[in-house]
Amino acid sequence: MNEREMNEALDARLAKLARDIPPGRDLWPQISARLRDDDQIVAPIGRNRVRGVWWWQLGAAAVLVALSSLTTYGLMSRQKAASERVAAVEFVQHELGAASFLPAGYVQARQELSVAFDESLARLSPETQQVVETNLRDIERSLKQISDALARDPGNATLQQLLVAASTQELRYLDEVRRLALNVPSKGA
């Protein structure tokens, strides 16, 4: 077989390969949740917002504060099954009546992230886990201080923005730990 024939044979085989391969799962809910986080930060300086949007943001932030407590709980009891965690998140969502505030897929994405985070954390060394837990406690302390201040002054727009920013920071931190842990082999390997 000469070079031209070989090239033609190779091209014929390559032509059969798909150029479009959909992801194995729908990635949109997670992307959508992150876009909304971005919107909350960009809103005061950029995009047009509708009146009353702070109610949605406050609702989302309140859920995030509650969920962050669940995450702490999860860190303290890693043996807890993922299914129990999801049930607990659903309970908080129901108790807060927050479902109407939140966009489709947001809570689900947050739940997935929470479960994925615990799995990711287990891949890290004990020393790194300690650093991560300390950092998370710092973020959660900030969240608590802001939410306490908001309870005293619910109409304070600056505190509302700070709460959204701190919640977003926590969400990003959880996601970043998950991303970085992908590069660490599991302990069982």
């Binding site: 798909a18 150029r19 479009d20 391969i21 959909p22 992801p23 990635l27 949109w28 992307i31 959508s32």
Partner: peptide, 13 residues
């Protein structure tokens, strides 16, 4: 989202 639906397959590949 419509742009995601249109392009995610190619980006993923």
């Amino acid at each position: 989202e419509a742009l995601y639906r249109a392009h995610s397959g190619r980006v993923h590949a």
